[in-house]
Amino acid sequence: MTQIFQRAWVGKGLILLLMALTLLPFLSLFTAALAPGGTYPSGIAWPEAPQWNNFVRAFEVADIGRMMVSSLIIVLGVVPLAVVIASMAGFALAKLVPTGRKWLYLVFVLGLTLPFESIITPLYYEIRALGLLNTRFAIILPLLGLYMPFSVYWMRAHFINVPQDLSEAAQLDGAGYWREFWYVQIPLARSSIMSLSILLFLWTWNQFLLPIVLVQDPAKRTMAGALGAFQGQWGTDVPLLSAGSLIIMAPTIIIFLIFQRQFVAALLQGAVKG
């Protein structure tokens, strides 16, 4: 009995240590953010006169309101459409069994491991030829494509486990494929769709490469891309950079804390299936 007890404490101790290591960098950034602007603070040191004003200043210069709106527009442009068309494709690949299904599925899955950097160069010229550089479409359209391998794979994995007799029942009912999809299959796929939406939201919000290459104006970027620009412009002032970085991270962390159960579940499943 004591052995199990000890073991539990060793485990908890380890976990607490790891948690401390996870949080330490944020604490350090936080104390740096409170140092007088333009100075060069030390790692962790509570400043004599904490400059809460740095956060106000960072909020103003980073134009965080516009950044959030921009990220939100991009997320709204990507996530709903990606989820719908991936569900359609996943449903078809699992249930409608088109000819050449194996081949088609393989083509989609091929993209699962694709590093975005491998195609960023041609994407730049493609987006430029479409006249979409410096617009949010330059981020939205490529992401719709880049998310398809994972999303189709994910939704197909769901539909393949739905019992076949459900489809048959729907067909007996006289429903076409379209109606079966919308009114029978989609409502049953809610939890898969929810998780997929969370993952796509996070990946979009945090997307960095596409915005820095394709969109110059930080106000039309995603949150991560805007943070890159913020670092470029204010990286010379450590307290301001720290305050700004914390403010820019805050929305994600707050949303995460509110929906942490769903997020953790989605990320764990996402990893397993991905």
Binding site: M19, N206, A224, G228, Q231, S245, T252, F263, L267
Partner: peptide, 11 residues
């Protein structure tokens, strides 16, 4: 332990 997963890698 999941916080590092949700913040952007740039951050």
């Amino acid at each position: 332990l999941f916080i590092p997963q949700v913040i952007p890698l740039v951050a």
